[in-house]
Simulated assay, not measured.
Amino acid sequence: MKIKIAIPSKGRISEPSIEILEKAGLGLKDNSNRKLFSKTHHENIDVLFARASDIPEFVEDGVVDMGITGLDLINEASADIKVLTDLKFGQTKLVLASPEESDINSVYDITDEMTIASEFPNLTKKYLKEKGLNLKIVKLSGSTEAAPFIGVSDLITDLTSTGTTLRMNHLKVIDIILDSSIKLITNHDSYNNKKELIDSITTSIKGVLDADRKKLIMMNVKSEDLEGVKKVMPSMTGPTISEVLSSEKTVAVQAVIDEDEVFKLVNDLKNAGAKDILVVPIERII
């Protein structure tokens, strides 16, 4: 039973998609050549490189069993798919924007006589309908920011992560249409017929996500200092404590901690009596 996973062939989410598969144990054998297809280190799992905007339709139609793409593209295509998990990267917003010097400062300033340009005409049309508006929508495939300044439109809808590009192009955000991020998706038929392998892939990827910015901290502690160490030790489920075979009454303590806790915690643990402190990365948490 084979599984095909579609990932973006280029763009800002391509490399993070490959990286997360690598960390999940599904390294690509043909990644250096970036062909249309690549085998992975699992004999029953192959990867298809495709345009991110095509992936929702490929998954829905069963061309592939799984895919990695943005929620914005999924919703724009109105794809009937199953979201397996959020991949926690590629956060962006689809926003409504107008020129800085225009009198359009909110959705209430918009009239049906205006024109709006977008790479996301379906999401834009749905948004306008919800607001009781019926503007002309001009579909563009790039350089949306320029549309109001060359007479193409009065407004735009566009993706932004920080808003910097919009500000550089003298545009102001007047509303947020959609919060988007990158999703792992499948279609209903594949999930019903290949559930075991799809669930295994999803579990491995979730394990990578759960391990992100986590560290395993290990140390030796004299029994008499254990209570003091436990007081300063954060952990997912409480520290693991085991006996150390030595001449002293010593125990080994280990716990999973957040990366941003390491600096302060190591010093607190040392002051509480811990020694031989090790901090190591974690690949996955299942």
Rank of each mutant, 00 (worst) to 15 (best):
T124H: 00
N33Y: 12
A117G: 09
S106L: 06
K125M: 08
D103N: 15
R51D: 13
K194Q: 09
A52T: 07
I116F: 05
P281H: 09
T237R: 10
V59H: 06
M218C: 10
L71A: 11
S17A: 14
K249S: 15
E101I: 10
N169A: 10
D30R: 04
T164R: 14
K214N: 04
F37D: 05
E119L: 00
G228A: 12
E43I: 05
H188E: 15
M233A: 11
E19C: 02
D276Y: 04
L216R: 09
M218Q: 14
V107K: 09
N134R: 10
R12Q: 13
E15W: 01
G25M: 04
A272Q: 02
E248W: 00
D154V: 07
P234M: 06
V64D: 08
I137Q: 03
S180I: 11
V251T: 09
Y191G: 07
K125Q: 11
K4Y: 13
I198M: 06
I68M: 08
L226D: 04
I176R: 10
I68D: 01
E15N: 09
I150K: 06
E243V: 14
K35C: 03
I185V: 15
K275W: 09
V253Q: 02
S102D: 08
K222F: 13
D109G: 09
M114S: 05
D179I: 01
I156M: 04
L171C: 08
I156Y: 01
T202N: 11
E57N: 08
V95W: 02
R213S: 13
H42N: 15
L87W: 03
I257N: 06
L128P: 06
I7S: 05
K23R: 15
I176F: 04
G132C: 10
A77H: 03
F49K: 04
H42Q: 14
M218D: 05
I177P: 01
A255G: 04
D103V: 05
K264L: 11
E76P: 03
I201S: 04
K88T: 11
S14M: 09
A255M: 05
I68H: 01
A24T: 09
K35D: 11
V63F: 08
E100P: 00
S78V: 01
T165G: 06
L184I: 08
A252H: 12
D65I: 07
D210M: 12
I110A: 00
R12A: 14
D179A: 07
L96P: 02
